[in-house]
């Protein structure tokens, strides 16, 4: 019974699916550079930048959900902390912006340490605990006005610099930078998922005892995922802050930053790497271009409907649908 070559079993890193993944990724990357080559309008580039920010956030959410097995309703906390930390470091301590951004991510990681006790909680309790944290951070940002400028917000902090002749504060430059970050973190995600840590995490979700009994410290692995997810969200929060050049608590910690990544990731397929990214771009453009023009106030109702329909009809998202329409093997798990 040596059928493994023609029949890549679910979960095994089969060569052909790797090649397909790389090809797909490279294809998308080329596609992503098209707007620059054809010289898209600043408005269009602006939309795409925001979509990619959301893509990074959705990726971070999906990493926690898929590898860590945790649903977060509070990614706004990390996004906001990253944004504020980076903006304040650059404004008050003159830290170079490109250094302040990853440090902002580290601050988000730091803030996620406060959530470690929540890791012991099961599904809904974790989800709601993290939501509580996000609210607390928003209120703190409003109340600590000596630091954050309070409800009035922060206006004056440095924007992105020029590197190697590329002005990152220009739309095209920002676009390239954000895109590069999305690709970078997607690669990090892929590497982790293929590592033994990723394999163990895949097993934990449904076989906790069996996995722990062979020596896997589930809590520690999940902690790493939480810290990394917070870091990624923080970096994109910081990027976004320096690109738009303005921060206020109700914006930086807005529930939008918790809700949109969920919709994007579930829509695209949160068990895959590309799903959340593609989902974010599609959902964001749909929301801004279609939904907003149809229903100026309350356009999120359409997103809610999309999310509900997706969970009911295609819980594995777009990527699950694609896999169903173009089956590669008889036993396909949604984890390509």
């Amino acid at each position: 019974m040596s059928h493994s070559a023609s029949h890549p079993a679910a979960g095994s890193p089969a060569g052909s699916s790797t090649a397909r993944g790389i090809a797909l990724g490279a294809g998308l990357l080329v596609l992503a550079l098209v707007p620059l080559m054809v010289g898209a309008s600043p408005y269009m580039l602006g939309l795409l930048i925001s979509a990619l920010i959301l893509a990074g956030l959705a990726l971070s959410w999906a990493l926690l959900g898929n590898l860590g097995g945790m649903v977060s309703f509070g990614h706004a906390a990390f996004f906001g902390v990253g944004a504020y930390a980076s903006a304040l470091l650059a404004a008050r301590l003159n830290v170079p912006v490109l250094l302040a951004i990853p440090i902002g991510g580290l601050f988000a990681t730091l803030s996620s340490l406060a959530m470690l006790p929540a890791l012991r909680l099961s599904g809904p309790y974790f989800a709601l605990a993290i939501l509580a944290y996000a609210q607390i951070f928003r209120i703190l940002a409003t109340e600590l006005d000596w630091l954050t400028g309070g409800a009035a917000g922060l206006q004056r902090f440095p924007s992105l610099p020029t590197v190697f002749g590329l002005d990152l504060s220009e739309r095209a430059g920002s676009y390239v930078l954000v895109l590069a970050c999305v690709v970078l973190f997607a690669l990090v995600y892929v590497v982790i998922r293929r590592s033994h840590v990723g394999t163990a995490l895949r097993a934990i979700a449904e076989s906790e005892d069996a996995t722990r009994v062979v020596g896997v410290n589930a809590t520690v692995l999940k902690t790493w995922m939480l810290l990394l997810s917070a870091f990624i969200a923080g970096v994109f929060g910081a990027l976004n802050a320096h690109i738009i050049g303005f921060l206020e608590p109700d914006y930086a910690f807005s529930g939008i930053w918790s809700v949109m990544p969920i919709i994007a990731a579930v829509f695209g397929g949160y068990r895959t790497v590309l799903g959340p990214i593609v989902g974010a771009v599609v959902i964001y453009l749909f929301d801004q271009v279609v939904a907003k023009s149809l229903i100026p106030v309350g356009h999120q109702i359409l997103l809610g409907i999309v999310l509900a329909v997706m969970v009911l009809v295609a819980p594995n998202g777009l990527s699950g649908l694609v896999a169903r329409l173009f089956p590669r093997s008889e036993k396909h798990h949604a984890e390509a």
């Binding site: 999120q300 409907i305 009911l312």
Partner: peptide, 15 residues
């Protein structure tokens, strides 16, 4: 999935 679904329904009702 039920968390996400009821969350979505909440968004729909609110809006």
């Amino acid at each position: 999935n039920s968390l996400i679904l009821t969350f979505a329904i909440g968004i729909i009702l609110t809006n």
